[in-house]
Amino acid sequence: MNFTLKIWRQKDAQSKGAFKEYKVENVSSDTSFLEMLDILNNDLVHKGEEPVAFDHDCREGICGMCSLHIDGHAHGPSQAVTTCQIYMRQFKDGATITIEPWRSAAFPVIKDLVVNRSAYDQILQAGGFVSVRTNSVPDGNAIPIPKADADESMDAAACVGCGACAATCKNGSAMLFVAARVSSLAKLPQGRVEGARRAKAMVAKMDELGFGNCTNTGACQAECPKQISIAHIARLNREFLAAKLKD
C-alpha cells in the first residue's frame, strides 16, 4: 500500500513547527501504524534526514505512551484502541494521512509529535494513590467487594493515562483522566477511606496546571482508547462536591 503522510515537524519546544509531506510506498497492509513510521524513519535516516520523533513503548496498548492525533482523531479513526494498535489496512490505499501531536496548553510539544504529558503525572502525584497501610496481600475473601463495584473500579482502572481525553476536549479538560483515577479507588474499600482528600487534591492540581472546565460534551469518552465512561466524571463531581460541602 502507498500513503502520503502530512506530519507535524517541530525542532524543539521553542521553534515554530509546520506540516511536511512524506511518501511511504509498498508497505504491507499488516504493518502497524507505528511500524509504518519506523519504515519512514529508516528511509529518512538513510537519506541523512532527521527522523520523525514520536512516543511509544509497549506497542500493545497498555503503557499509554503512544499519542498521535491521526486524521482528526486521537489514536486514529478506530474505536477503543491506542495508536500502537492500529494497522495500515484500516486506511485506504493511496490515502493522505494527517498526523499531529496532542494539542493542549498543558501538553506542550517537545519535538515533532512528542508532547510533555508530565501534567498528568503531577495530578496523580497529588492524590491518585492509597496511602493507608494495606500490608501484604490479604486473603481473597477477607474483604468482600460487591461484583458491581469491583467491575466499575476495574473499568476505571483501565485508563492508561495517555492524555487523549484532554487532547480531544475542546475545553482542554482533564476530567476523564482524573475521574477514572478517583473513581477506580473510590469504589474499593482501601481507596474509599481517602476519597474526599483525593478528589479535592487531584482537582486542585488539575486546575492549577491550567486544564479547562468540563462542559460535558462527551468527546473524551468517544476518543478514549480504554472507553472510560463519563459516568466516572459524574462520580468525581459527587465526590468533590460532597467533600467541599463537608468542609
Binding site: 482528526g72 496548553a105 475545553n171 479547562g212
Partner: peptide
C-alpha cells in the same frame, strides 16, 4: 479559560466525535 487551556495551536483536521452533539 477553556480557550486558554486548549492552547494557541489548533488541530489542522477536526471531526465531530461519535455521540457528541
Amino acid at each position: 479559560q477553556n480557550r486558554k487551556a486548549r492552547g494557541n495551536v489548533r488541530y489542522a483536521v477536526t471531526v465531530t466525535e461519535k455521540g457528541v452533539s
